[in-house]
Amino acid sequence: MSILGGGIFKGMAVTLRNFLGSYTNKKERLPTIDYSWRADGALPQGIGDYPKEKGEQLSDTTTVTEYSRNFPMLLHDGGEPMDTVRCVACQICERECPPQCIYIEKDYDENGKYIKRPAVFDIDVSVCMSCQICVEVCPFDAIVMNSQFELSTPDRFGGLLMRRDDLLKSNDYYHKIHPEEAAARDAKIAAEKAAKEAKKKAAAEKARAAAEKKATEAAKEDAK
């Protein structure tokens, strides 16, 4: 050590540099306040002064990043939500949910016949830990993550229990908040559908061929 307390003076130089730098070089020194350094610029205006400046700037479709996830929502393909809802109430997500915050009841018509949609679909968002496992295990791409974060409520019980109708969101909305993910998912569904159709066609073909064969055989039998 060359001078007395040299290390201390070095440290003081660093803090002085930071003190001055916080006025001159905001990008480097005040990254938590100055968001301009974020290359994607995904942060909406006004979020830096969040509770005071919200209003219209923070709409329902505010999203922080492409993959930002808060709580799940149920997708429907437009029109009357319950007619086009993708969920068939298979309850896989209910079983796989790690904190077990999903509750599903199947829907039955008046004859007691199971119609492929949920009668009750509750998510207790005070328990939900936004892990996205339900999204991944869903075979029907019916449940995806919403990025809405303004859910604070003075009601401890009802306010944080999201019912089926709160959870239902259209696919268009999904495209708005997570465009890339939604496009990929749509493509996947289309591909699956196409594959399924092809399979169905093939199966139908096969069945027809088999039926024809059978018919011919039966005819042969008859002929005998």
Binding site: T15, N18, F19, S22, Y23, L30, I33
Partner: peptide
């Protein structure tokens, strides 16, 4: 304020004239 700036924060900046921004 000075400590905040040393630590790269802004420090107190909200409380000014009451009932205004």
């Amino acid at each position: 304020k000075a400590l905040a700036r040393i630590q790269n924060r802004i420090g107190p900046n909200k409380v000014g004239i009451p009932c205004t921004r």
